[in-house]
Each structure stands twice: as C-alpha cells, then as structure tokens.
C-alpha cells in the first residue's frame, strides 16, 4: 500500500479550470475594498492613539501644574480672600457707624459715590489679578484700594468726632 507521493502526482491529471472573464476586475474590486476597510481601521487606531497620548500628557501636565499652582495659588488666594473679607467687614462696620454719626445726607451721598468709584477701580484691578495671580504689584494695588476706602471712612469720622468734641469744650 505504500506509494510514492511523487508518483501519484505524476499519474493524476489535474483538471484545468477556466477562470471567468470578470475574475481580474472582481479581484481588484475586492482588493481595493479590503484596503479601504483596513485604512479606515488604521486611521481610527491612529486617532485613538493620538487622542490617548494627548489625553495622558494633558492629564499628567495639568495634574502636575495644578498640584503646584493649587498649593501656592490656593494659599495666596485664601490669604487674599481673608484680607479682602476683613477689610470689607471693617469698611462695612465703619460705614454703619459713619451713617449713624452724621445726619448730613449730602455727605453720606458723597461718600457713597466715592466708595462706589473705588469699588469700580477694585473690580478693574481684580480682573488684572485674574490674568496674573502671582503679580505682587497687582495684589498690593488691590489691598491699597481697600485700605483707601477704610481710611476715608475713618478720617471723616475722626474729623466729625473732633469737631463735636471741640465744640463741646468751647460750649463748656
């Protein structure tokens, strides 16, 4: 039963199959279709890869910087917010005692306008601060603005009190 395979091939006459006329076109069509599909898949992979790389870089970078900035900015911002809060509370306190101290409506209106004008200035400097949070000059300008408001209210009350005190003394 043992046979030589080579002899088997020699003996067998292979049937010659005739290929259809459209075989070449069909083959090329299939080939281009498969290429397009593969190209689409490769492009998708490329985009996904780029996206994931960019996302990872972005994540790492923002994380790194935000950690650093958050640490300094937050400390600074908290401090500034505290300063602002303290000043505004004091300004309000001085304002309340000022409107109790004087009955002069014209005077109150003038100070109201002046404080409003200073507040507008403060908003302008605040927008500069938002652009550059580490600029000490801007920060100092913010504080100076608050200080001016407080000083104006303290000065006018001191003026009125001194006037009242001196008048009392001269009457006595």
């Amino acid at each position: 039963m043992k046979q030589n395979i080579r002899n088997l091939f020699k003996q067998e006459v292979l049937q010659k199959k005739k290929l259809p006329d459209s075989h070449r076109e069909g083959f090329l069509e299939k080939l281009t279709a498969s290429k397009k599909k593969r190209k689409r898949i490769t492009m998708l992979y490329k985009y996904a890869a780029i996206f994931s790389i960019l996302f990872s870089i972005g994540f790492v970078v923002t994380n790194l910087f935000s950690k650093e900035n958050n640490a300094t900015d937050t400390a600074l911002e908290i401090q500034l917010r505290e300063i602002e809060k303290t000043y505004l509370e004091n300004i309000d306190k001085e304002w309340q005692s000022f409107i109790v101290l004087t009955k002069d409506e014209k005077l109150i209106k003038r100070y109201e306008d002046k404080l409003g004008e200073l507040n507008e200035g403060y908003q302008e400097i605040s927008s500069q601060y938002k652009i550059d949070k580490n600029n000490m000059i801007v920060i100092e300008a913010l504080i100076e603005n608050l200080k001016t408001r407080l000083q104006l209210l303290q000065d006018i009350q001191q003026h009125i009190n001194l006037l009242n005190k001196e008048h009392e003394n001269t009457t006595i």
């Binding site: 400097i125 600029n135 000059i137 801007v138 300008a141 100076e144 603005n145 001016t148 000083q151 000065d155």
Partner: peptide, 16 residues
C-alpha cells in the same frame, strides 16, 4: 504691561 501696573500703584503708594 508691567509698567502700567507699576504706575497704577505708584499713585496710591503714598499713604495718608
């Protein structure tokens, strides 16, 4: 940019 900010402050540097 820096200078204009400096001068903003200069006007208010002098304390009463």
């Amino acid at each position: 940019y820096f200078n204009s900010r400096i001068y903003t402050l200069l006007g208010t540097l002098y304390k009463k």
